[in-house]
Amino acid sequence: MSPILTAILVLGITGLVLGIVLFVIARKFKVEEDPRVGQIAELLPGANCGGCGFPGCSAFAEACVKRDSMEGVKCSVCKSEVMQQIAAITGHAVEAGVEKIAVVRCSGSCENRPRLRAYDGAGSCAVAAMMNGGTTGCFFGCLGCGDCVSACKFDAIHMNPETGLPEVDQEKCTACGACAKACPRGIIELRNRNKLDRRVYVSCVNRDKGPVAKKACNAACIGCGKCVKACPFEAITLENNLAYIDFEKCRLCRKCVDECPQHTIMAVNFPPKRVQAEQAEVQETTESNTSQEQ
């Protein structure tokens, strides 16, 4: 037999045998997967951010199919149309979710909150937080090491080098909650995205008594309670020297914003106020607010 023939025979037989082995194994160990899992997984963003509480997007897709209802199964990143599509695949109704956004509740920029010391340890807020006190007089505010930035899978939060504070990109933020979880001081909160992304919130988490807080930071909530009195909707509570606006109750009237002596309450994405004289009557302000509300 010529060597060429031998080679062809050997290779051919090897190929055949291996092919049969592959076929048998593929048959025997075939995994039956619900085709809907794959369909759903394709709709999902695939960032595996974990905002839904499942280990990743495929686990979420599996949960969508396996569960009897969609209660508690919601991708915080997907738009509601996508959730509707998923619902159409699974046949369960989804609750109309409210879109949210991450909000940084600290205004302790370098200007407002002088840096008294220099932090010299490992570059992580979690490590810095273990020293309790930080580089400023405020023991509650942003540490500025950027754990939230590294936690974000969507490139939606960045440190502003001028203020030393993180800023959320409202276009990119998907409200997965990774930054809120990463922040050792609980500064970041997920709040409702209202109409036109308008938000009113207390941009401070300092629970120290008024004078201590004020000494530490020019923009700290001093717990004076003026906003609580000003709110017509009982949306503001004062606890541990700190005001908090309940975003479910807030109707965005912005009365508290004007009342706050420390300018701690932030109103975002509202059109610039009409030019008003400093001594404008309170009546007028109220009117303009009501008109905006409608």
Partner: peptide
């Protein structure tokens, strides 16, 4: 002086 802070 502005002091450094970091853990031991």
């Amino acid at each position: 002086q502005k002091l450094y802070i970091s853990t031991s």
